[in-house]
Protein backbone atom coordinates (compact mmCIF):
# COMPACT_ATOMS: atom_id res chain seq x y z
CA UNK A 1 0.00 0.00 0.00
CA UNK A 2 1.12 3.59 -0.63
CA UNK A 3 1.16 5.27 2.73
CA UNK A 4 1.37 9.04 3.08
CA UNK A 5 3.10 9.99 6.29
CA UNK A 6 1.95 13.06 8.21
CA UNK A 7 4.87 13.35 10.60
CA UNK A 8 3.41 16.19 12.79
CA UNK A 9 5.35 19.33 13.66
CA UNK A 10 6.51 18.07 17.07
CA UNK A 11 7.92 14.84 15.67
CA UNK A 12 9.50 16.60 12.70
CA UNK A 13 11.37 19.14 14.78
CA UNK A 14 11.90 17.46 18.19
CA UNK A 15 11.48 13.70 17.70
CA UNK A 16 12.74 12.77 14.21
CA UNK A 17 13.63 9.28 15.49
CA UNK A 18 9.92 8.51 15.76
CA UNK A 19 9.45 9.34 12.09
CA UNK A 20 12.42 7.20 11.06
CA UNK A 21 10.99 4.35 13.14
CA UNK A 22 7.59 4.64 11.43
CA UNK A 23 9.28 4.51 8.03
CA UNK A 24 11.30 1.48 9.06
CA UNK A 25 8.25 -0.46 10.33
CA UNK A 26 6.09 0.31 7.31
CA UNK A 27 8.84 -0.51 4.79
CA UNK A 28 9.69 -3.71 6.67
CA UNK A 29 6.05 -4.72 6.27
CA UNK A 30 6.34 -4.13 2.53
CA UNK A 31 4.58 -0.78 2.15
CA UNK A 32 5.67 2.25 0.21
CA UNK A 33 6.02 5.42 2.27
CA UNK A 34 5.55 8.92 0.84
CA UNK A 35 6.31 12.14 2.64
CA UNK A 36 4.60 15.16 1.06
CA UNK A 37 6.99 18.06 1.68
CA UNK A 38 4.26 20.73 1.78
CA UNK A 39 3.01 19.49 5.18
CA UNK A 40 3.59 21.47 8.36
CA UNK A 41 1.23 21.30 11.37
CA UNK A 42 -2.31 20.00 11.88
CA UNK A 43 -3.30 23.18 13.74
CA UNK A 44 -3.99 21.55 17.08
CA UNK A 45 -2.11 24.12 19.16
CA UNK A 46 -3.95 27.03 17.57
CA UNK A 47 -7.28 25.22 17.75
CA UNK A 48 -7.04 24.17 21.38
CA UNK A 49 -5.84 27.63 22.40
CA UNK A 50 -8.79 29.34 20.70
CA UNK A 51 -7.01 30.72 17.60
CA UNK A 52 -9.54 29.18 15.28
CA UNK A 53 -9.02 31.37 12.23
CA UNK A 54 -5.32 30.42 12.19
CA UNK A 55 -6.30 26.77 12.66
CA UNK A 56 -8.61 26.94 9.62
CA UNK A 57 -5.63 28.01 7.50
CA UNK A 58 -3.79 24.86 8.60
CA UNK A 59 -6.86 22.69 7.93
CA UNK A 60 -6.88 23.96 4.34
CA UNK A 61 -3.17 23.29 4.03
CA UNK A 62 -3.59 19.74 5.34
CA UNK A 63 -6.48 19.04 2.94
CA UNK A 64 -4.56 20.44 -0.04
CA UNK A 65 -1.54 18.31 0.85
CA UNK A 66 -3.27 15.01 1.63
CA UNK A 67 -6.68 14.84 -0.01
CA UNK A 68 -5.56 12.44 -2.76
CA UNK A 69 -3.64 10.09 -0.46
CA UNK A 70 -4.62 6.42 -0.30
CA UNK A 71 -3.90 6.20 3.44
CA UNK A 72 -2.63 8.92 5.75
CA UNK A 73 -0.68 7.65 8.76
CA UNK A 74 0.03 9.89 11.75
CA UNK A 75 2.30 8.80 14.62
CA UNK A 76 0.39 10.91 17.15
CA UNK A 77 -2.95 10.21 18.80
CA UNK A 78 -3.77 13.86 19.45
CA UNK A 79 -2.98 15.04 15.91
CA UNK A 80 -5.07 12.17 14.50
CA UNK A 81 -7.94 13.15 16.82
CA UNK A 82 -7.55 16.75 15.65
CA UNK A 83 -7.81 15.82 11.96
CA UNK A 84 -10.67 13.37 12.35
CA UNK A 85 -12.58 14.93 15.24
CA UNK A 86 -12.00 18.67 15.09
CA UNK A 87 -11.61 19.52 11.38
CA UNK A 88 -15.37 19.13 10.84
CA UNK A 89 -16.03 21.60 13.69
CA UNK A 90 -13.64 24.17 12.18
CA UNK A 91 -15.01 23.72 8.66
CA UNK A 92 -18.62 23.97 9.79
CA UNK A 93 -18.61 26.52 12.62
CA UNK A 94 -15.56 28.69 11.96
CA UNK A 95 -14.85 28.60 8.20
CA UNK A 96 -18.58 28.01 7.51
CA UNK A 97 -17.39 26.37 4.29
CA UNK A 98 -19.53 23.49 2.96
CA UNK A 99 -16.87 22.45 0.46
CA UNK A 100 -14.19 22.23 3.14
CA UNK A 101 -16.56 20.30 5.40
CA UNK A 102 -17.20 17.75 2.64
CA UNK A 103 -13.48 17.47 1.93
CA UNK A 104 -12.54 16.75 5.57
CA UNK A 105 -15.40 14.29 5.96
CA UNK A 106 -14.46 12.40 2.81
CA UNK A 107 -10.81 12.30 3.90
CA UNK A 108 -11.44 11.20 7.52
CA UNK A 109 -11.84 7.42 6.90
CA UNK A 110 -8.39 7.38 5.25
CA UNK A 111 -6.69 9.00 8.25
CA UNK A 112 -5.09 6.54 10.69
CA UNK A 113 -3.11 6.81 13.87
CA UNK A 114 0.05 4.69 13.45
CA UNK A 115 -0.89 1.77 15.76
CA UNK A 116 -4.45 1.87 14.48
CA UNK A 117 -3.17 1.52 10.91
CA UNK A 118 -1.23 -1.60 11.92
CA UNK A 119 -3.96 -3.27 13.98
CA UNK A 120 -7.15 -2.19 12.24
CA UNK A 121 -6.25 -1.40 8.63
CA UNK A 122 -3.59 -4.10 8.22
CA UNK A 123 -5.03 -6.49 10.83
CA UNK A 124 -1.64 -7.14 12.45
CA UNK A 125 -0.72 -7.85 16.03
CA UNK A 126 2.87 -9.06 15.56
CA UNK A 127 5.18 -6.82 13.53
CA UNK A 128 8.30 -8.84 14.25
CA UNK A 129 9.82 -6.55 16.83
CA UNK A 130 12.37 -7.40 19.53
CA UNK A 131 12.91 -5.09 22.51
CA UNK A 132 14.55 -6.53 25.62
CA UNK A 133 13.48 -3.88 28.16
CA UNK A 134 11.02 -3.41 31.03
CA UNK A 135 8.31 -1.13 29.60
CA UNK A 136 5.07 0.42 30.82
CA UNK A 137 2.45 1.88 28.48
CA UNK A 138 0.66 5.20 28.98
CA UNK A 139 -2.69 5.26 27.17
CA UNK A 140 -3.06 8.85 26.02
CA UNK A 141 -6.44 10.52 26.54
CA UNK A 142 -6.95 10.88 22.80
CA UNK A 143 -6.15 7.22 22.23
CA UNK A 144 -8.77 6.21 24.80
CA UNK A 145 -11.50 8.77 24.46
CA UNK A 146 -11.22 10.36 21.00
CA UNK A 147 -9.92 7.53 18.80
CA UNK A 148 -11.23 4.66 20.98
CA UNK A 149 -8.15 2.55 20.24
CA UNK A 150 -8.74 0.46 23.35
CA UNK A 151 -6.19 -2.32 23.73
CA UNK A 152 -4.87 -2.05 20.16
CA UNK A 153 -1.50 -0.51 21.03
CA UNK A 154 -1.09 -2.94 23.95
CA UNK A 155 -1.74 -5.88 21.65
CA UNK A 156 1.18 -4.76 19.49
CA UNK A 157 3.41 -4.42 22.56
CA UNK A 158 2.41 -7.85 23.90
CA UNK A 159 3.67 -9.41 20.67
CA UNK A 160 7.10 -7.80 20.91
CA UNK A 161 9.58 -10.50 21.78
CA UNK A 162 11.89 -9.98 24.71
CA UNK A 163 9.77 -7.20 26.18
CA UNK A 164 8.87 -7.14 29.88
CA UNK A 165 5.56 -5.26 29.72
CA UNK A 166 4.15 -4.04 33.04
CA UNK A 167 0.74 -2.49 33.53
CA UNK A 168 0.59 1.17 34.54
CA UNK A 169 -1.73 1.78 37.52
CA UNK A 170 -4.54 4.32 37.04
CA UNK A 171 -3.71 4.39 33.34
CA UNK A 172 -6.91 6.10 32.18
CA UNK A 173 -5.96 9.34 33.89
CA UNK A 174 -4.45 12.27 32.00
CA UNK A 175 -0.73 13.08 32.47
CA UNK A 176 -1.55 16.79 32.70
CA UNK A 177 -0.09 17.93 29.37
CA UNK A 178 -3.09 19.36 27.51
CA UNK A 179 -1.04 21.55 25.15
CA UNK A 180 -0.87 25.14 26.36
CA UNK A 181 -2.61 23.93 29.56
CA UNK A 182 0.84 22.77 30.73
CA UNK A 183 2.03 26.39 30.55
CA UNK A 184 -1.13 28.37 31.37
CA UNK A 185 -2.00 26.13 34.31
CA UNK A 186 1.53 24.98 35.04
CA UNK A 187 0.90 24.24 38.72
CA UNK A 188 -2.20 22.08 38.23
CA UNK A 189 -0.48 20.37 35.30
CA UNK A 190 2.52 19.65 37.53
CA UNK A 191 0.30 18.12 40.22
CA UNK A 192 -1.19 15.77 37.62
CA UNK A 193 2.25 14.93 36.23
CA UNK A 194 3.58 14.14 39.69
CA UNK A 195 0.90 11.51 40.23
CA UNK A 196 1.51 10.07 36.75
CA UNK A 197 5.25 9.80 37.48
CA UNK A 198 4.54 8.18 40.84
CA UNK A 199 2.54 5.46 39.07
CA UNK A 200 5.24 4.99 36.41
CA UNK A 201 7.96 4.66 39.03
CA UNK A 202 5.85 2.14 40.96
CA UNK A 203 6.05 -0.26 37.99
CA UNK A 204 9.83 -0.46 38.08
CA UNK A 205 9.91 0.09 34.31
CA UNK A 206 12.95 1.66 32.69
CA UNK A 207 10.88 2.96 29.79
CA UNK A 208 7.46 4.58 29.51
CA UNK A 209 5.94 4.41 26.04
CA UNK A 210 2.85 5.87 24.37
CA UNK A 211 1.48 6.65 20.94
CA UNK A 212 1.97 10.38 21.34
CA UNK A 213 5.19 12.31 21.78
CA UNK A 214 3.40 15.30 23.27
CA UNK A 215 2.39 13.26 26.34
CA UNK A 216 5.85 11.71 26.35
CA UNK A 217 7.59 15.08 26.08
CA UNK A 218 5.65 16.11 29.18
CA UNK A 219 6.16 12.90 31.15
CA UNK A 220 9.77 12.56 29.97
CA UNK A 221 10.50 16.18 30.87
CA UNK A 222 9.36 15.48 34.43
CA UNK A 223 11.21 12.17 34.68
CA UNK A 224 14.38 13.85 33.43
CA UNK A 225 14.04 16.83 35.80
CA UNK A 226 13.68 14.45 38.75
CA UNK A 227 16.65 12.34 37.60
CA UNK A 228 14.47 9.24 37.90
CA UNK A 229 16.49 7.11 35.51
CA UNK A 230 13.33 6.32 33.55
CA UNK A 231 12.96 7.56 29.98
CA UNK A 232 10.22 7.84 27.39
CA UNK A 233 10.19 6.17 23.97
CA UNK A 234 7.47 6.39 21.31
CA UNK A 235 5.66 3.13 20.53
CA UNK A 236 6.91 3.24 16.91
CA UNK A 237 10.52 3.04 18.07
CA UNK A 238 9.82 -0.11 20.08
CA UNK A 239 8.05 -1.68 17.11
CA UNK A 240 10.93 -0.69 14.79
CA UNK A 241 13.48 -2.47 16.94
CA UNK A 242 14.52 -5.97 15.86
CA UNK A 243 17.09 -8.51 17.05
CA UNK A 244 19.22 -7.75 13.98
CA UNK A 245 18.79 -4.00 14.16
CA UNK A 246 17.98 -2.95 17.74
CA UNK A 247 16.63 0.57 18.26
CA UNK A 248 18.40 2.38 21.06
Amino acid sequence: MRVSLFITCINDSLFPDTGRAVVRVLERLGHQVEFPLAQTCCGQMHHNSGYHDDAVGLVRRFVDTFQDAEAIVIPSTSCTAMVRGQYPYLAKHVAKDEGLLRAVEVMAPRVFEFSEFLTQKLGLSDVGAYYPHRVTYHSSCNSLRSLHLGDGPLTLLRHVSGIDLVELPNNRECCGFGGTFAVKNAETSTAMLTDKMRHILSTGAEICTAGDNSCLMHIGGGLSRQRTGVRTVHLAQILASTAEEPWA
Partner: peptide, 28 residues
Protein backbone atom coordinates in the same frame (compact mmCIF):
# COMPACT_ATOMS: atom_id res chain seq x y z
CA UNK B 1 16.07 23.07 32.07
CA UNK B 2 14.99 26.74 31.81
CA UNK B 3 12.91 28.67 29.31
CA UNK B 4 12.00 32.37 29.39
CA UNK B 5 8.41 33.53 30.06
CA UNK B 6 5.77 32.71 28.90
CA UNK B 7 7.27 29.21 28.52
CA UNK B 8 8.75 29.31 32.03
CA UNK B 9 5.59 27.55 33.26
CA UNK B 10 6.82 24.45 31.46
CA UNK B 11 10.28 24.48 33.04
CA UNK B 12 8.73 24.94 36.50
CA UNK B 13 8.74 21.15 36.74
CA UNK B 14 9.86 19.76 33.39
CA UNK B 15 12.91 19.83 31.17
CA UNK B 16 12.25 20.69 27.55
CA UNK B 17 13.88 18.53 24.87
CA UNK B 18 16.55 20.21 22.78
CA UNK B 19 16.04 20.46 19.02
CA UNK B 20 18.10 17.71 17.38
CA UNK B 21 20.62 18.76 14.71
CA UNK B 22 18.57 17.12 11.98
CA UNK B 23 14.80 17.30 11.57
CA UNK B 24 12.83 14.39 10.15
CA UNK B 25 12.38 16.36 6.96
CA UNK B 26 16.15 16.89 6.60
CA UNK B 27 16.71 13.17 7.07
CA UNK B 28 14.01 12.26 4.57
Amino acid sequence: PWLPPPLSGWTLSRDFPALPAESFRDWW
